[in-house]
Design a protein around this nucleic acid. Structure first.
Lengths: 202, 202
DNA sequence: ATATAGTTCAACCATTTGGTTGACAAATGA
DNA sequence: TCATTTGTCAACCAAATGGTTGAACTATAT
C-alpha cells in the first residue's frame, strides 16, 4: 500500500472531528483543534474559513457515517431473522470504537436541525431489503403486524442508548466496570432473541 | 393553597435549570440565565458564586429528578407484569413534559463524572420490589433467567432514546411530525408487550 | 533564475464572557 | 430612630476566544 502523505487539510479535519465529537460545538475550541493537529490556529481559518463552516463539514460527515453504516447490512442476501443479530452486533461494535459519535450527532441535531442536512439525502432505511422482508412477512401473516420502523428504532435504542448513557446507568445501578463488558455481552444475545421472538410468535 | 412568593434565589435557579438543560454547561451563558430570570447578572454570583457552582446544583437536582422518579413505581403493590407498562408510560410521559432533561443528564455526565455526584447516593434500583419480583420469578422458573438489570435498561432505552434522538430518527426515516405521535403511541403498546412476552415465554 | 500561486505562522484585534466593585436601596432589629 | 445586614444594579475588568494580517517560506512552472 502507498504511504500517502496526509495533507494539512486532512490533518485539520481529523483533529476537528475528534475534538468536536468529544466536546460538541459549544465546548470545542479552535486552539484545541489546532493543537491536536499540531499546526497554527490560522491554518484552520485558511482551510475552513470559520468555526461554523468547519463544524458543518464535521457534522455532515459524522451524520453520514452514523446513519449510513447500517444500510449495507440491511441489504444483504439473508433472512430478516439473520439480519437482526448482525445489526445488533454491528451497532454494539461501532459503539465500542467510536462511543462519542452517536452522542455528538444526536446532541447537535437538536440545535442544527435540518439546516446543515438539507442537502444530505436522508438515506432510505425504508427502501432496504430488510424493510421489504418485514413488510412481506407481515402481509403473509408470518410476522406480527407492527410497523417495521418500530423494530429498527428498537434495535438502535437497545444498542446505542446503554452505551451513551453508561455513566448514568453505572451510577444508578452501581454496576462496576468489570461487569460492564459482561452486561454488554449479555445484551448482544438478549436483544435479538427478544425482537425475533416478539415478531414471530403472536 | 398559599400564593408563595418565589425568592430571587429560586427564580435564578429555575432559569438556570431551564438554560442549562437546553444548552448544556458549555453552551449556557450567565447573561442568558440572568435575562431569563429577569434580574441583573451580578445576582447570579451573589447567590451562587460562580457558573460552576450554579451548574453543579442544577446538575445534581436534574440527576436526582430523572433517576429517582421511577423508584416509587417499582415499589408499588402490583405484579411485575403490571409495572412494566406503567414504567413505559411514565417514561414516555416524562419525555413529553421535559424532553431536555435526560439528554442533559446523560450528556454532562460524560464530563462531570462521579465528581459532582459523589455525595448523591446512587438510588437503589436494585433494592426495589420490582427487582425482587423479577429475581423471585427467575428462581421459581416462571421468568426467563436473564439479569433483571437488562430489563430495566431495555425499558429506559426503548422509551428515552427515540425521544432524544427524534430529529435524527426523523431525518433517517422521513417520519413526519404528524406521524410522530402515532409512532410514540404505538411504542407505548409494543414495548411492554415485547418485554413481557420475552420474560414469560421461554 | 524568477515570477506566481499556494502554504505557514507570529503577532494582533474586536468581541464575548465570567466575574468584581462600589454605590445605593430595602428590610431588620435594637 | 438609626445602625446593621441583606439585596440589587450599572459600570468595569481581565481573560478567553474567534478571527485577521502581513510577512516569510515552499513548490512549481516558464
Amino acid at each position: 500500500m502507498v504511504d500517502e502523505q496526509k495533507t494539512t487539510e486532512e490533518i485539520i479535519f481529523e483533529a476537528a472531528l475528534s475534538v468536536f465529537q468529544r466536546k460538541g460545538l459549544a465546548g470545542a475550541r479552535m486552539q484545541e483543534i489546532a493543537d491536536e493537529a499540531g499546526i497554527n490556529k490560522s491554518m484552520l481559518h485558511y482551510y475552513f474559513r470559520s468555526k461554523e463552516l468547519l463544524f458543518k463539514q464535521v457534522f455532515i460527515k459524522s451524520f453520514k457515517n452514523f446513519s449510513a453504516s447500517t444500510i449495507p447490512i440491511m441489504n444483504l442476501e439473508l433472512s430478516w431473522e439473520e439480519k437482526i443479530p448482525l445489526l445488533v452486533t454491528h451497532y454494539l461494535k461501532a459503539m465500542q470504537t467510536r462511543p462519542d459519535l452517536p452522542m455528538f450527532v444526536i446532541n447537535e441535531m437538536r440545535y442544527n436541525p435540518e439546516d446543515f442536512l438539507s442537502n444530505v439525502s436522508g438515506n432510505k432505511i425504508k427502501d432496504t431489503v430488510f424493510f421489504a422482508q418485514l413488510w412481506d412477512g407481515i402481509n403473509k401473516g408470518t410476522i406480527r403486524p407492527i410497523k417495521p420502523i418500530q423494530i429498527v428504532v428498537s434495535i438502535i435504542s437497545e444498542t446505542v442508548f446503554p452505551v451513551i448513557a453508561k455513566p448514568m446507568i453505572q451510577h444508578m445501578t452501581k454496576l462496576q466496570d468489570t461487569n460492564w463488558e459482561e452486561f454488554i455481552a449479555d445484551r448482544e444475545k438478549v436483544i435479538p432473541e427478544m425482537l425475533i421472538k416478539y415478531l414471530k410468535e403472536f
